[in-house]
């Protein structure tokens, strides 16, 4: 890819697919532009005014022509629509295969990245090739957008909810991370690098950074620190539900609905417990943690609660995604 290429590096499975679609659009776009330019120039020259008192005959229109130039472009657009939509659903629906989960928290003006094994980085993301990576996005303050041009993907980072997307890297190298949603003074400095490594180097990199606690262990510490444990584990009177095997499974609510316990549900259960009461339990028992726990800590708690599901269910988020609800809040 030369210095003047019109394509950024292609480093994910979807990059080539998006480029192919873009190529199709370019061909149609350039073709249509050429057609219109041709006719404008052709008519303008061929029918130029030769004497000041020319009186051309009126032509009021043609229904067949109007139909042709409405229907044909529309059919071409249907192709764009179908192709674009298929790819969009594919890119935003995490695969059912076992994914590598990575947690990204946006904060004015940096990206904080956490790995399940406990490594933490700022503005640097390391991923292996050949394995689907699911990214869960959280924001500590305003809107941001996590943009990986080499992967042809981005997703807004929305405070108050989790957003997810996924990719599978294909080509080792170092590629840009940009913030693509304006977020204040140093928006243009909210940038970083994603390093794609082959699986072996990735393992080496992981073990070099290991030694600290994993995200689940950190979450367990918070679970004790915030006193969750006194209710959810130690309480013997049955006033509080056990959190074993909650994640990924259906939860029956007091109002009769049943919801899947995904990340968004757990998040809401912690920050604003009264929004959804588990069937058989009372409201106003669990304290409201809104504003008490930062986003990174919250993610650790969620990973901890996830780890209590045995065997860990494949991320529930995709059930929600399949239902077309990506940000239940």
């Amino acid at each position: 890819m030369g210095a003047l290429s019109i394509f950024p590096p292609r480093a994910s499975t979807t990059a080539g697919e998006v480029d192919a679609l873009y190529g199709f659009l370019l061909v149609v776009g350039i073709g249509m532009t050429a057609l219109i330019f041709f006719f404008v120039f052709f008519f303008a020259i061929k029918y130029r005014r030769r004497s000041p008192d020319e009186r051309p005959k009126a032509i009021h229109g043609s229904i067949p022509l109007e139909i042709t130039w409405s229907v044909i472009p529309f059919l071409v657009m249907l192709v764009m629509f179908a192709w674009g939509t298929k790819l969009y659903f594919q890119n935003y629906t995490p695969p059912r295969r076992d994914t590598l989960d990575i947690y990204v928290t946006g904060k004015q003006w940096m990206w904080k990245i956490q790995y399940p094994d406990g490594q933490r980085e700022i503005n640097e993301l390391h991923v292996p090739t050949g394995r689907p990576v699911k990214v869960t996005l959280a924001s500590e303050d305003v809107l941001h957008s996590f943009f990986l041009p080499a992967f042809r993907l981005k997703h807004d980072v929305v405070p108050g909810s989790y957003q997810t997307f996924w990719f599978e890297a294909t080509k080792p190298g170092r590629y840009h991370i940009f913030c693509a949603e304006y977020c204040g003074t140093n928006h243009s400095q909210m940038i970083g690098w994603v390093t794609v490594m082959d699986p072996v180097s990735y393992e080496t990199w992981l073990s070099a950074g290991a030694g600290g606690s994993s995200m689940a262990e950190l979450g367990q510490k918070l679970f004790e620190q915030y006193g969750c444990v006194s209710c959810h584990v130690l309480d013997q009177q049955g006033r509080c539900p056990s959190l074993r095997n909650v994640f990924g499974n259906p939860v029956k609510l007091e109002d009769g609905r049943t919801v899947i316990a995904d990340e968004a549900y757990i998040r809401e259960s912690i920050l604003n417990p009264n929004a959804k009461i588990v069937s058989g339990y009372k409201r106003d028992v669990m304290p409201v943690f809104q504003g008490q726990i930062n986003e990174e800590g919250l993610l650790q708690l969620i990973v901890y609660i996830k780890s209590l599901s045995n065997p860990p269910k494949p991320a529930a988020a995709k059930t929600a995604a399949a239902a077309g609800k990506r940000s239940p809040q």
């Binding site: 149609v28 764009m80 674009g84 890119n91 935003y92 041009p149 993907l153």
Partner: peptide
């Protein structure tokens, strides 16, 4: 306007918009 309108189609094509929106 032709060029502007046609590139609007690029943006209406969702998978491409994901890449080029906010750029």
């Amino acid at each position: 306007f032709t060029i502007g309108g046609l590139t609007g189609l690029f943006l209406a094509t969702m998978a491409v918009d994901v890449h080029v929106t906010d750029t």
